[in-house]
Design a protein around this nucleic acid. Sequence first.
DNA 1: ACACGTAGAGAACTGGT
DNA 2: ACCAGCACTCTACGTGT
Length: 303
Amino acid sequence: MESEVEVRCPECGSRELTLDDVRGETACYDCGLVLTENRIDPEGKRIGYTEAGQSLGHVGAPTNVMMPDGGLSTSIPWQNRDYAGRTLDSKARTQFHRLRKWQGRGRVSNSMERNLVAAFSELDRLSGVLGLGRGAKEESAVIYRKCVEGGLVRGRSIDAMVAASVYLANQKLHLTRSLDSIVNATRCSRKEISRAHKIIKSALGVRTRIPEPGIYVGRLCTELELPMEVQRRTHIILEEATDRELTHGRSPMGVAAAAIYIAGRMENYIRTQREIADVSDVTEVTIRNRYKELVHELGYNLE
DNA sequence: ACACGTAGAGAACTGGT
DNA sequence: ACCAGCACTCTACGTGT
């Protein structure tokens, strides 16, 4: 029997919740509130499909790039019994004992796999602290695995390489974790992590773009408890600002923060520069500078 | 309390050697 | 690897409403 749990937005009561599998976020379609960034993955491995393509059901945990063998290993059980439950004779017992021993060694057999085990436990910890979704965590794991396979980790700190992988995954997926938030969640220095980040980027041929201010709007508006009208208005302002190249060379977060400030005033949901500065990791001064530019260049009239 | 402005320090990037 | 130059942001103020 299927159990259907009804989820509603605590803010506006809407049932229109959109799931973003990559970001691991559930957001309300109507008011934009981000409900959770750590959603449980509903899709286990499927047993199979009917002719019509209908799923027969799920079994087991989802496949997992976070485990050296993808989480798909078979273990030889410790009970010395055969498939029918009969105890094994001494010869067979010895044989299985040997098999188990070699399986145990084989699973984490070489330095690469041992490295991955250490790295993924750090990744686990880090994504817990940062509240990363499953998609971001997996992307980080994929990047890190490529680093190990490419021999980039040798001679460098595993923690720094993991942190850099997380940062790169965040950039690739257009998430909003800053380098500083990652630095604060590790024991590595900012310098170490950005150097590792640079190395990974060039070795894997990954190109990253400067984030667009728009990606910060949802999270900031949610933290500031601003309604959807303000979010929409902010996006309109940012679009005009981008067209007029007012975002070039400016910190995207600063531009987003200023646009939210303006949008809030336009829609009569006024937040002070201080409040916006607190949630956006830019200072009031930066918000003021961007605000001044935007209002001046785009000809807004805020009384 | 809040908005606005400024000076000097500092971090980050680029390009040259 | 180091340095200089550059644009941007931050800290820490003062002033005005």
